[in-house]
Design a protein around this nucleic acid. Sequence first.
DNA 1: GCTTACCGTTAGTAAGAGCTTACGGTTAGA
DNA 2: TCTAACCGTAAGCTCTTACTAACGGTAAGC
Lengths: 121, 121
Amino acid sequence: MDTYLQAGLDALGDATRMAIFQKLSSGPLAVHELARTLPVSRPAVSQHLKVLKDAGLVLDSRAGTRRLYQLNPEGVARLRAHFDQMWTRALSNFQTAAEKPHPPHKGDKHGKPSRSRSKSV
Amino acid sequence: MDTYLQAGLDALGDATRMAIFQKLSSGPLAVHELARTLPVSRPAVSQHLKVLKDAGLVLDSRAGTRRLYQLNPEGVARLRAHFDQMWTRALSNFQTAAEKPHPPHKGDKHGKPSRSRSKSV
DNA sequence: GCTTACCGTTAGTAAGAGCTTACGGTTAGA
DNA sequence: TCTAACCGTAAGCTCTTACTAACGGTAAGC
């Protein structure tokens, strides 16, 4: 598996992190700002931001005593590309497999004969 | 938030479920088949399949004593569309916000009415 | 120097997710 | 009918994770 893709999925799989992601899409925000509009504490937001940062989805920068977080367009675009690749491959393989209706049967205890006899077309 | 999108993210956020998803992209498989190639037990696979099914990503059909699972192209396409929408909106909003370099400052203790009123998520 | 504001990190807790074992139901075949 | 194969579900356990509270560190303002 693609660990980058999995990290992105895991990061956005949490509802709170998704909310943070959405809020940051409106522009840079400080941790303090984010926490004020969320039902969790500020440290919790910091932890979520760390996950998002490790996944390459956000960037942070210092501004005095504050720390501004913003989306990482590069990371977002990269994750999007991985997603597109996954969708395309999945649907492509699916369509290819759909053209050979040969689900393996009970006689495959030893392995998986990927391709087998032709019965009906 | 879009619950459908969140459900899809949550479903694919787990590594085991992602592995199942990938395997199913090669064609329909029985629970027994999936479990054999995964480091978890058959009941565990069943539970993951239920999550994927609830998220609209897979379909199941009976074949004798077996139960075949396959990708749900409709659900996959739908989730993909939601993703595309999310990426597009996020990057669009981000770019728009980037053109007004006015990060909120310390004088906003009462609230945050500064940004554009369209807070849409 | 002192105070205030903001933030990251740690420790500790509670809730949820994932896993296995065990059990019961359904279907195919002898 | 009896047996074997396949599957879903429930019960129980473990472990991850999301959260809060408390602490220390840094920058701005007095």
